[in-house]
Design a protein around this nucleic acid. Structure first.
Lengths: 224, 224
DNA sequence: GTCTATATCGGGATAGAC
DNA sequence: GTCTATCCCGATATAGAC
């Protein structure tokens, strides 16, 4: 996690991560111990902890690497023709599809994800770079659509779409329906609903309702 | 957990639970071991496990006791005069006020709370009785108000209000602002927004929007 | 039925030698 | 950078006292 200057160190770190993922997939996150991982990687347990400060950090490292690899896939999803609704859905689908083989592994991140103070939480300071990268994609999605968004809502919109995405991912990770069909349906209906709300938000008589919602958002964000 | 026929046994069980909560509060949930708890309660470790089969079980007992003790407080909050909005807010405030001394304890439980399969999660099968008790209070709140709710929305409303409550509690548990003022503001604005939306939902031209929202809810709930 | 005392296990994580 | 040895944890098991 910290020092990877030498090629040897990088190789060791990589080997540990691969061994861990392999175990997580074939057995499960919980039933895989750090001793197992270290053994499979051919290092001592202490060495595993030298590179990854916790078992969950291994999953986070995977998530991080995945985020990088996903960039071109997201770009491709956004490049496709289609309405705002279609492209919003496809952006999120691209992520789900990419993570598909490791859905069970991601489930392990749930535990740390909920506490905003936890370093591995998607809401934490430590994961801000990943979040910002994500936000820029939603930014881009909005910019490259023909949607007209009320000025006061505009700055909040990328964050709101990001929250929608997080909700879908949460549902997906915990979704036990075959092939996660439930999540697919929610994504479809959700993208439709979000788009519908955005269209409505342009109508003149919705101003006071929108301001009310924005005030609530500001309060949740803790802006005085 | 099993046999508490004799008063002595009940007293011991109670003593262990109190010692545990005391430790959770003064130190923290994670840093308190079963050995600590047993010691503080003046019993052997085995005795603690005799009454509570796991550390988790202690938390369940805490949930259950809290739920029981809160019943009259919630009743009192609902009995007060006021609009739907006021009484919704006061119902939730009653819970926050009750949990105040154990806010930190609840925070430690966030981790398990997020996974619906975890026994301690508010969404789990194990906590269903507590959840159902909660739902009945929201039911009562709706019944005893002058609100007219569209027929299709009506069956979903208690659950929606419960979700709103859970959102507020989540915010409160993670709220670092002095005296959790942020949460209080969100609760105020949120209750207002919820009530406003309910009033609007009666207007004729909101039907298609409402049905869209209800479809989304059904999908999230996994109803085919 | 209600405990005490103790030993044991595998888990995550760490300290300090090398 | 890496390893060995160790710590503490939750949990289980057991044998026996009252």
């Amino acid at each position: 996690m910290f020092k990877r200057e030498t090629p040897k160190a990088a190789a060791t770190a990589h080997r540990i991560l691969e061994a861990a993922l392999d175990r997580f997939r074939s057995h499960s996150f919980d039933s895989t111990s750090m001793r197992d991982i270290a053994k499979a990687a051919g290092v001592a347990t202490g060495a595993a902890y030298y590179y990854y400060e916790s078992k969950e950090a291994l999953v986070m490292a995977f998530y991080q690497a995945a985020s990088n690899e996903m960039q071109p896939l997201i770009q491709a999803a956004l490049n496709q023709q289609g309405s705002f609704e279609d492209r919003l859905r496809r952006l999120i689908e691209a992520k789900l599809n990419y993570f598909e083989p490791n859905r069970g592994v991601l489930r392990a991140l749930l535990r740390s994800g909920i506490d905003p103070k936890h370093p591995l939480s998607p809401f934490s300071d430590e994961t801000k770079p990943i979040r910002d990268t994500d936000l820029r994609w939603f930014e881009k999605l909005i910019e490259t659509s023909d949607l007209t968004v009320p000025a006061d809502l505009r700055p909040e919109l990328p964050g709101l779409l990001w929250m929608f995405q997080m909700g879908v991912i949460y549902l997906w990770v915990t979704d036990e329906s075959p092939g996660q069909r439930r999540t697919r349906l929610v994504l479809e209906l959700g993208a439709k609903a979000v788009t519908g709300l955005l269209r409505i938000s342009n109508l003149p008589f919705t101003g006071s309702l929108r301001r009310q919602a924005l005030d609530l958002i500001q309060a949740v964000k803790g802006v005085e």
